[in-house]
Write a protein that binds this DNA or RNA. Structure first.
Length: 584
RNA sequence: GCGCCCUUAGCUCAACUGGAUAGAGCACCUGCCUUCUAAGCAGGGGGCUGCAGGUUCGAGUCCUGCAGGGCGCACCA
């Protein structure tokens, strides 16, 4: 069970193979000229080039081989050698009637896939800069899980670097470390107060260290001591970390972003010393300018790649060190097939260094894929890296709150809100808000920069998350009415007519979109598909009688088509981390 | 200086990895709520895909050069 195009690819591929041509050239895709055909295969032209034959002759041989097949209602050669294909309505009915798992074939990969899509620093308020990694990573995780991959999402927070030295240094200098040490973790007010304290103190300490070299040096020294787990630094750190994690979990939960592993840089500390010793023994690590480094250059390099620093000259470790050690740990614990880092594109040199280092050190072999699935920078409407009017970065919680407010206003304007109780209204506003934010972000291609536009992120009309929810809710409302009228349609025969055909064909594309998203670690392919499906339904809904259709067979058929559409929309949205309210 | 990325409609973005007539949303214009939710539908205008060459049956997509923008280049993450 796959998509319609994949099914056709097998047939056409066999026809190519029978002509001693590469099977892959039989790849069939949905036509980009729907006025000419439903599906197309372009392989004949490529095959002709390889075999030095006339493309139309090659195409003709394929067409002849396919013509005995009764699932095609049209097979034509067009232009230089396009093979245009239409399927019969009987085939389409049959495909949809037997549709299982939305046409998605499970993978047979049973090793783990590790997804790294968090990276927030502890003690810092989460801001909109954390949005993309969280949303894209969570969607990739959900999508891969649905395909049957065994994923592990790791938040991998920044908790072992110099920024911790700055914060701890500030507490000690002000002699206020007891605020942290004595905080009662069971008192939610105290915890909140401390988080607010971090939010003020950290920027202050960080700014001061940047201006004052002595403070910076002090922060570095404390960081080294912390990394040696010396007191009182380590105790203060532990408390800061556990409080921060609590806040972080709350925000991620609010966003509907989930992780399997709540690990940080510090968790792999014990792997570092043995790893460095091993690298020294292998003569890969050496001392340069007082630091312990590993060379990662390659003969074919066109640019200079600096070595990866494992230990700074003061003995401290950097995030490259912990990243390598994390890979050591992941190999040991999970022996994964892939590790995918969904991290800002600007980190690409860093990941290149890390990946080379661990391959060179034989920490991972060629059976393990290491990918930096980078995403573009979030810019403001002026094209520069995003800042609020006050010059800061907008907090993630503020963004969510704004979107919820806007959704609540919109909801109160609608007539149907009057009979909702407060709990339902709150739930609907929340779901609409999250859908708006997530879909606005996810529909962008992952790797290019994008403009952070608050109006767009909290927009509910047009190509938005709420539009998709709305269409899904409309179908579900119809189905509920059908149920209330005791209309049974689950076992109805599908009747494909002109009005239904586009929607029906689209239902057979789900797996194509899903696979593209997986291959590229890019949810925007799935977004594109969902939008097309929702639009196609909306058009269908506007043009056809469904519940009000007088012909009972046709009515049942259409209800069944609606039912399948709703299921697919709801599932696809779920894979993006978007959830559908009962009504809106 | 070296290297990576980007430039598509007025704006924000797509284009199934080289295919046919480059598609959506916003904004603008024209219709449609006494039939299933108007957060909607039907339709319209709007493009030398930054510029110039090249590769080939075929280029927004690949190669070269140029212009403009962003980013990264040893002890921050």
């Amino acid at each position: 069970m796959t998509s319609i195009a994949q099914n056709l690819s097998e047939l056409v591929g066999s026809a190519f193979a029978a002509q001693d041509l590469p099977r892959e050239l039989g790849q069939v895709r949905v036509s980009d000229r729907p006025d000419l055909a439903q599906f197309q295969c372009n392989g004949a032209m490529a095959a002709a080039k390889q075999a030095k034959k006339n493309p139309r002759e090659v195409a003709q041989a394929i067409v002849d081989a396919l013509s005995s097949n009764d699932i095609f209602s049209k097979i034509e050669i067009a232009g230089p050698g396009f093979i245009n294909l239409n399927i019969t309505d009987e085939y389409l009915q049959d495909y949809l009637t037997n549709l299982e798992n939305f046409g998605v074939e499970p993978t047979d990969e049973d090793r783990k896939i590790i997804l790294d899509y968090g990276g927030p620093n502890i003690a810092k308020a989460m801001h909109v800069g954390h949005l993309r990694a969280a949303i894209i990573g969570d969607a990739v995780r959900r999508i891969m899980n649905f395909k049957g991959y065994k994923t592990l999402g790791d938040v991998h927070m920044g908790d072992w670097g110099t920024h911790m030295g700055m914060l701890i240094g500030d507490y000690i200098r002000e002699d206020e470390q007891n605020i942290v040490l004595n905080a009662d973790m069971n008192d939610s007010n105290a915890v909140q107060k401390l988080m607010d304290d971090f939010a003020v103190r950290y920027p202050k300490a960080s700014g001061a260290a940047k201006e004052n070299p002595e403070l910076m040096q002090e922060a570095r020294d404390i960081t080294v001591k912390l990394q040696d787990k010396a007191e009182p630094y380590y105790s203060i750190w532990q408390k800061i970390r556990s409080i921060s994690v609590e806040g972080m979990k709350k925000t991620y939960a609010h966003l509907g972003v989930e992780f399997d592993l709540w690990k940080g840089e510090a968790d792999v500390h014990d792997y570092i010393a043995p790893m460095v010793d091993d690298l020294k023994a292998k003569k890969l690590a050496y001392t340069s300018e007082g630091a312990c480094v590993i060379d990662v250059t390659d003969d074919q390099d066109k640019k200079e790649i600096p070595p990866l620093i494992l230990k700074k000259s003061d003995g401290g470790v950097m995030y490259g060190t912990t990243d390598c050690a994390t890979i050591v740990e992941r190999m040991k614990l999970y022996s994964p097939a892939k590790m995918i880092y969904i991290v800002d594109q600007r980190q690409s040199l860093h990941f290149q260094q890390v990946f080379r280092a661990v391959r060179k050190a034989d920490i991972v072999n060629d059976n393990v894929e290491l990918t930096h699935a980078g995403f573009g920078t979030m810019n403001g409407t002026d094209g520069k890296p995003f800042k609020t009017r006050e010059g800061g970065v907008m907090r993630l919680e503020d963004l969510i709150a704004m979107a919820i407010d806007k959704a609540t206003v919109r909801l109160n304007e609608a007539n149907l809100a009057t009979d909702m109780d407060d709990a339902e209204r709150t739930d609907v506003a929340y779901k609409v808000a999250i859908a708006a934010i997530k879909f606005a972000d996810l529909q962008n291609q992952r790797q290019s920069d994008y403009i952070f536009d608050l109006d767009r992120l909290t927009s509910f009309e047009g190509k938005t998350g709420p539009y998709l929810l709305y269409q899904t809710v409309r179908i579900k409302s119809l189905l509920k009415k059908a149920e209330a009228q005791n209309i049974k349609f689950e076992n109805a025969a599908l009747i494909i007519q002109e009005e239904d055909r586009n929607l029906a064909l689209l239902l057979g594309e789900f797996s194509d979109a899903l696979n593209l998203s997986i291959q590229n670690y890019a949810p925007h392919y799935l977004c594109e598909y969902i939008h097309k499906l929702a639009q196609s339904f909306s058009s269908f809904y506007g043009n056809c009688h469904i519940l009000s259709e007088e012909n009972e067979d046709l009515r049942s058929s259409r209800l069944l088509l609606c039912h399948k559409t709703a299921n697919q929309l709801e599932k696809a949205l779920e894979l993006l981390g978007i959830f559908v309210p009962i009504r809106m």
